[in-house]
C-alpha cells in the first residue's frame, strides 16, 4: 500500500536540544498508526512538523506527496488535527464552531449545514447542535473534535492523546468511532499517546519514540518477537517440588525459545501455545502444577522493555 506520511532524516532542534533526530517514518494509507512514547519524547513536535506548523531543522516530511514545510496549506487541507487539549469557542454553539472550521476550510456556504449535520451524526451530537460548548462534557468535546476534523473530509487524521483524561467507557467509544471511520471511510489515523493499553487494541502499527528516536516500529506482535527473541507467547508456570528435572524437559520441547527461572516460577517464551505439553510434562513428574498462565505480548511490556533497556 501507498505511504501517506513519509519522513526522511527528520530532525528538529530546540535551543540545541534534539527533540527529534534523524527520523524515518512511513505511514501507510488506511492504517491506524500509534506513535507511542512518554511525554517529551517528541511526539507533538513530529505532529507539528507533519502539519507544517513547525519547520524541521533538517530532513523532509511529505504528506500525500506534499511537502509539509513548503506546501503546508495543501497538507492541512487533507489532514485533520485534534490537539491534545482540544478547545472550542465556549460561547458559541457546536454548530457555530463547526461552521467556523468549515469556512476556514473554504467550504461553500451552501454545503456547510449539510456537512455539519453529517459530521455531528457520526459522533452522535446532532441533538446538541444548538448547545453552547461551555455546557459540553470532556467526552462530548472530544467527540465534537472528531466532528470538527470530519468537516474537511480528511484523508488523514492526527489525534494527539485521544483518550487522555477520559474515563474508560468514553475512551472506548472514541476508539470505536476511530475504528469505524477507518473502516468505513478509509481515513488514515495517526494516534499519539502514552496510554498504551487503550491504543494497542486498535493500532495496526505502532512506533515507539524515545528522546526523539524511533526505537521500534511495526505490528505489535512483530515488535514483541523482535524484542523477546522472536517468541510470541509467554507462559508462566509455577510448580512445587523438584524443578531441575522439569527444566530439562522443558528445554527439550520444540518451539521453545527461552526459559527463565525464578525460584519456583518458570517463564517460557515460545512460538506456540505449549500449555498442554507443559501440563503433560508436569503430570509425568512428582511435582504439582500450582499456577499456569499465558500472555500475548502486551504493548505495555514491549514498551516497558524498551524503556528498561534505555
Amino acid at each position: 500500500m501507498e505511504d501517506i506520511i513519509i519522513s526522511k532524516n527528520l530532525s528538529k532542534n530546540y535551543n540545541g536540544n534534539k527533540a527529534v533526530s534523524n527520523l524515518d517514518l512511513s505511514i501507510k494509507k488506511g492504517e491506524i498508526y500509534g506513535l507511542l512514547g512518554p511525554n517529551g519524547a517528541g511526539k507533538s513536535t513530529i505532529i507539528l512538523m507533519i502539519l507544517g506548523l513547525t519547520e524541521p531543522s533538517s530532513g523532509t516530511i511529505n504528506v500525500a506527496g506534499f511537502n509539509s514545510t513548503r506546501e503546508a496549506l495543501k497538507v492541512k487541507r487533507i489532514a485533520g488535527y485534534l490537539p491534545e487539549k482540544i478547545g472550542f469557542y465556549e460561547d458559541m454553539t457546536a454548530e457555530q464552531n463547526l461552521a467556523y472550521t468549515a469556512e476556514l476550510n473554504n467550504i461553500k456556504y451552501s454545503e456547510i449545514p449539510k456537512k455539519i449535520e453529517k459530521a455531528l451524526k457520526i459522533v452522535g451530537l446532532v441533538e446538541n447542535k444548538k448547545q453552547i460548548v461551555k455546557q459540553f462534557s470532556k467526552g462530548m468535546k472530544q467527540r465534537l473534535g472528531i466532528a470538527d476534523v470530519l468537516i474537511k473530509d480528511p484523508e488523514l487524521v492526527i489525534f494527539d492523546e485521544p483518550t487522555e483524561g477520559l474515563d474508560v467507557k468514553v475512551a472506548n467509544s472514541i476508539l470505536d468511532t476511530i475504528i469505524k471511520l477507518n473502516k468505513e471511510k478509509g481515513i488514515t489515523f495517526m494516534l499519539s499517546s502514552h496510554q498504551l493499553n487503550l491504543i494497542q487494541k486498535i493500532c495496526h502499527r505502532v512506533g515507539i519514540l524515545s528522546n526523539g528516536n524511533l526505537i521500534g516500529e511495526g505490528k505489535i506482535d512483530e515488535l514483541g518477537r523482535k524484542l523477546f527473541g522472536g517468541g510470541r507467547f509467554i507462559i508462566e508456570v509455577e510448580i512445587s517440588g523438584d524443578t531441575k528435572e522439569i527444566l530439562n524437559k522443558f528445554s527439550n520441547l520444540k518451539d521453545v525459545i527461552d526459559i527463565g527461572k525464578e525460584g519456583n516460577v518458570f517463564q517460557i517464551i515460545c512460538n506456540k501455545d505449549l500449555r498442554s505439553e507443559i501440563s503433560k510434562i508436569i503430570a509425568n513428574t512428582e511435582s504439582i502444577l500450582t499456577r499456569m498462565n499465558i500472555k500475548d505480548y502486551a504493548l505495555e511490556e514491549i514498551y516497558l522493555k524498551y524503556f528498561k533497556e534505555e
Partner: peptide, 15 residues
C-alpha cells in the same frame, strides 16, 4: 490557553 489556537491553525489557512 483555550486550545483553540492549535485547532484553528491546523486548518488550511496562513498563520
Amino acid at each position: 490557553r483555550s486550545g483553540n489556537l492549535s485547532r484553528v491553525m491546523s486548518q488550511p489557512i496562513f498563520r
